[in-house]
Amino acid sequence: MPSLEVRGLRHSWVRDSRTRIPAPGRDASRVLDDVSFEVREGEVFGLLGPNGCGKSTALRVLLGLLEPDAVELRWNGVAVAPGGRALRSCMGVVFQAPSLDGRLTVRENLALSAALQQVDRSKVAARIDDALELAQLRERAGDLVSKLSGGMKRRLELARALLHEPSLLLMDEPTTGLDELSFQRTWQRLDELRSRRAVSVLLTTHRADEAARCDRVAVLDQGKIVALGTPAELAQSVSGDVLTLEAHDTDAVAAQIRAEFGLEARVVEGKLVLERERGHELIPRLVEALPRGSIASLSMHRPTLADVFVKLTGRSLGRGGEPS
């Protein structure tokens, strides 16, 4: 049985036009177009897409912070309203932007959240201690949150979201702004948590490496789901290796590769992208064939979800998904 089922989610900015500017090159009002997916019990489900693709909007609709044009939600098989009490009572949320009270201490923020989430009074002290441990902020418990570093606040956000042991965790770009070490630690903590008890996770991300850690991923582009599956299934849509080539005259090099090698060379954000089985064998042939000095750099890697996104949409995940 799916834990959370989302069917036919549609949302447009019409009623929010006062504060929102639609991304260029797309329907000015439609932000989410018939988005459907399910988060199964105990899995980590990722919504992958560039900034502005509508993934955070989808989360805000589920949380009841935005009014959708249409959506059907089921929580453990029972129809629920977006952001309804049934849903709010069993979920924890990590927002993209900080949502802590900077003028309260770390412990006060946790206590406030425990009260808002109606944690049993007899368990509050122990849960706060656990959260401080999880956030590695035991020594800073009495400090004002405004004095913490960005990474510390992020850790505290995650610990706070887990304080009431939610069965559904919603995370909007949970590792945004974290360095590599903090990113790894956050996922380590999430994995530890999942090994201790069943929690379903729905997260949004624009990072391919983060999406690769999910059990299943929906690729979202311009408000529509363009692919859905496990990271391995999605990666299979890109054949062989991916070669990325930076050239001084990209169009001329692309034309030459098409003519001489019969390969489809796509230009993505000024770089040439080639897909090829046994890519390492192609590299020396390319270097030989192309005029001396025309290649600025040439690299090869196994396909990632970033390559899947490029293949599906012709745009890169990195810079807000603008057309190449």
């Binding site: 009572s89 949320v93 927002f95 009270d101 808002l116």
Partner: peptide
């Protein structure tokens, strides 16, 4: 200020009405 700092949305997604 709570809306700008994000605190308000954390309150709104808590179980209370």
């Amino acid at each position: 200020e709570d809306r700008h700092s994000g605190f308000l949305q954390a309150v709104l997604v808590a179980p209370g009405s």
